[in-house]
């Protein structure tokens, strides 16, 4: 997975390249929006007493994002492993 690494084999038509890049852009925005949503649910209280985040919420958001990325990587890794072992019946 490469975020904005804009990976992809060279030697493809410009149309395909742009399409691949667009897919990646969609992935980034999608992930970001999910992140905003999830971390808001997990960290920000619904009683809106103040318009600023407090220290607790700020730290919670920071850790939420970091952990989300970690989870992302871990899940990616285990997916790869499963794929290699052919547990989905792909390699068999």
């Amino acid at each position: 997975m490469s975020f904005l690494g804009l990976g992809g084999s060279p030697n493809v038509s410009s149309q395909a390249k742009i399409q691949a890049a667009e897919a990646e852009l969609d992935m980034v925005t999608g992930m970001f929006n999910q992140l905003v949503d999830i971390c808001h649910k997990k960290c920000i209280g619904t009683s809106y007493n103040a318009s600023d985040l407090d220290k607790n919420e700020s730290l919670c958001v920071d850790r939420c994002v970091a952990k989300y990325f970690d989870t992302n990587l871990k899940v990616g890794d285990s997916m790869q492993k499963v794929g290699q072992n052919g547990a989905f019946g792909v390699n068999r």
């Binding site: 985040l53 407090d54 700020s58």
Partner: peptide, 10 residues
């Protein structure tokens, strides 16, 4: 921990 901080403050 309930002190308000700007969003970009670590």
């Amino acid at each position: 921990s309930h002190a308000q901080v700007p969003f970009n403050m670590m």
